[in-house]
Design a protein around this nucleic acid. Sequence first.
DNA 1: TAAAACGTTAAATAAATTCTTAACAAAATT
DNA 2: AATTTTGTTAAGAATTTATTTAACGTTTTA
Lengths: 183, 183
Amino acid sequence: MSESTEGPNSKIEQAKDKVIGTIAETMDLYGVTPATANLYAMMYFKEQMTLDEMRTELEMSKPSMSTSVRRLQEIKMVKRTFTRGSRKHTYIAEKNFFRSFMGFYCQMWEREVKMNMEAIEESQKDFIDIIKDSASTPEVIEEAKKYYDQLEESKTYYHWLDDLVASIRSGKIFEFLPKDQQD
Amino acid sequence: MSESTEGPNSKIEQAKDKVIGTIAETMDLYGVTPATANLYAMMYFKEQMTLDEMRTELEMSKPSMSTSVRRLQEIKMVKRTFTRGSRKHTYIAEKNFFRSFMGFYCQMWEREVKMNMEAIEESQKDFIDIIKDSASTPEVIEEAKKYYDQLEESKTYYHWLDDLVASIRSGKIFEFLPKDQQD
DNA sequence: TAAAACGTTAAATAAATTCTTAACAAAATT
DNA sequence: AATTTTGTTAAGAATTTATTTAACGTTTTA
C-alpha cells in the first residue's frame, strides 16, 4: 500500500539496495539460485506480492518467479497469504530471520541425519556379516571391526544433531542462548 | 598400512561404498563440488593419503585433487600431515564430525553476520540522512523510519548467530546439549 | 458455454560451473 | 648445474545448472 512514490533511483531505493545485494549474496551459500536469492532479498522490503508484481520488479519470467517462490516456501522463507477479492496468489517474505533459520537448517540437518543414519545401519549390518562369516580371514575381520567401530562412533554426532534440531524447533535453545543479548 | 588385500569388489568395499555414497550425496548440499564431496567421503575410510593416491583411487586428475583438498582444508575437513621420508604432501580426513561441523558452519555464519551487518549499518546511515533531510516529504520520512526499524530489529538475529558461533567455538554449547545423549 | 486469466510443467536456450589438459614454478636429488 | 619430482595456476572443453519461451491444464467470469 504505502509504496515509495519516487522512482527507482530515489535515495530510499538506493539504501534498500545495499541490503538487498548482500542478503542475496550470502543466500546463494544456502543452496538457492541467484534468482531465488534476489527474489527473497527484494521481498524482504515488501508486503505481500503477486507473481506478476515480482516479475515486473525483477524483470524476470513468470515461471522463474513461480519456481523461486516454491523453493522459498519449502525453506519457510516465504508464506502464501490470502487476499480477498484477488484471484492472484499473494506471497509475503518471512521477515523474522529466526524462523527462516529454523526452517532452513532444521530441514537440512534432518535430511542429513536420516540419510546417513540409514546408510550407517545398513553398512554396519554388512560388517557384522563379514565378521561372523567363517570364510573371512583374520585380517578382513579386523578391518571390518575397525570400520564398524568408526561408524558406531559417528552416530554420536548424528544424535547430537538431532537434539540440536529438536531444541531449535521447541525453542528450548533460546533458554541457553537468549535472543536479546546485545554484543 | 592395513589396507584391504581384497579387490575393489570385496564385501568390505561394498559396505564402505554405501556410506561413501550418502556422505557424498549430503555433502553437496554443503556447497562443495561433487569431486570434493567424493574425495572427502572416500578419505573418511582411509588414513593419510598423497595426491597421487587420491587420483588413483578416484580416477580423476591431479589438479582436481589439489583444489578439492584445498577446499576441504578451508572448511577444516582435511588436515595436512607430516610424513617423514616422503617428499609428497600427505593429508588425512577429519573423522570427528563435531570438528567438521564447527569448521564449516562457524565460518559460514561469521561471513554472513559480517557482510550483512556491514550492509545494515551503511543502509541505516542512509535512512537517517533521509529522515534528517529537510527536503524529504513526510511520506518518505515515514517510509525511511519503517525500513530503519526493520533493519534494527534484524540485528537481534545476527547478534544471536554470533553468540551461537561463540558457544560452538568455545564448546560451551555442549554443556547445554551434551554429546553423548542417546536417542 | 466460451473466453480469459492464472499458475505450472516441458522443452529449448543461455549461462555458469566443474573438471581436464597443458604449461609453469618451486624444490630436491643426482 | 641439470634433471626429475611435486604441486599449482591458467586456459579450454564438457557437463551441468539456471532461466526463458512455449504449451498446457485449471479455474473463473462474462
